[in-house]
Design a protein around this nucleic acid. Structure first.
Lengths: 173, 173
DNA sequence: AGCGTTGGTCTGATGAACAGACTGGGTGTG
DNA sequence: CACACCCAGTCTGTTCATCAGACCAACGCT
């Protein structure tokens, strides 16, 4: 996509957005970045995605301005830009939609507002504070349902602990 | 997808949601359904999608419970179910994201609350009523920017008039 | 110098999407 | 009735994307 084979409706911004985040794997990569995954190998291992495709996706996300590549102590890290962080509501709502409308009522992960320790609702609103917190002010933790923690890789194990969104995840080597 | 080649992370509801609405064309089809497009040929013509792929997508959307097929006066019509209508916030937010973060600041379409005639904001909220209206209570109209109305098919012409979302679109033959 | 880890690229096989031809049922029209 | 036309698909051969897995270069460690 994005090379002329895209949705050819230049007037429509939904089509434009989908050229960036509508390809296979892309939104899952973005979600992992929100969870604090930043390294090539960690993304690859957690998503079970081929190296070539991951490289391609990171490239389109970078040229679209969703991710930025930062080299810290020799290793590249992929971090969300402003445009990338603006995708949080989309990721959150789609996850909630999947929870409600694809079989199984047990949330795989629960999100709470760090400032007041209240779980946010289906649209990301914090009832006790009366507003919708930034993703950076949310804590993810695994839910209690049987669907929690199906995978068992280094990233999934790190996410077994409550973790603040948008902060780097500590991944055991 | 959905035939075993899907994202193989059963614990994650985002992945589940993407198996339904994450394929190429799917969300554009859903958006057109919100706009009141209901017939095979109209979808095909407006989206410039191949017949085979449109058939496949309608099938997965129906088995996922997003669309329902209703035969009225001999012709099948595809209408959004409850689960399908629940996708409105996702469609709306992604469109707004595309507007903000892919070049070009001119909204292709503008959405207003039918009850009070106020344009809704970037998260779909109506400032004068103080809540977020249902999609069925919104009116779409083309924006004034240069990006409005690039296409010129029967559906695009019908959408040149202000139109209430989720009501069938009158398409000239 | 040799080995492991990280972050990739390259290659051949498989699967999905595309354009365009074809089909089959219903609907007017002469 | 015969005929054309429209609508909603299916079928086919080609092109393009994805996949698994091999390969490779840079760096660090011992």
């Amino acid at each position: 996509m994005s090379l002329g084979t895209g949705y050819d409706q230049q007037g429509c911004y939904l089509a434009r957005a989908l050229e960036v985040v509508g390809e296979r794997w892309t939104l899952l990569i973005v979600r992992d970045c929100f969870y604090g995954v930043r390294r090539f190998t960690d993304l690859r291992e957690h998503l079970d995605i081929s190296r070539a495709v991951l490289t391609a996706r990171l490239d389109t996300l970078m040229t679209a301005g969703v991710l930025r590549r930062e080299v810290s102590d020799g290793h590249p890290e992929y971090v969300l830009t402003e445009a990338g962080r603006a995708l949080w509501p989309v990721v959150y709502l789609l996850t909630k939609w999947g929870e409600q409308y694809t079989s199984g009522p047990h949330p795989a992960r629960v999100y709470s507002h760090a400032d007041c320790d209240t779980d946010v609702d289906d649209v990301g609103h914090c009832a006790s504070c009366g507003y919708t917190p930034d993703p950076a002010d949310l804590i993810v933790r695994p839910g209690s349902g049987p669907n929690a923690m199906r995978r068992d890789d280094r990233v999934a194990r790190a996410l077994a602990e409550p973790h603040r969104i948008l902060t780097p995840l500590e991944i055991s080597s």
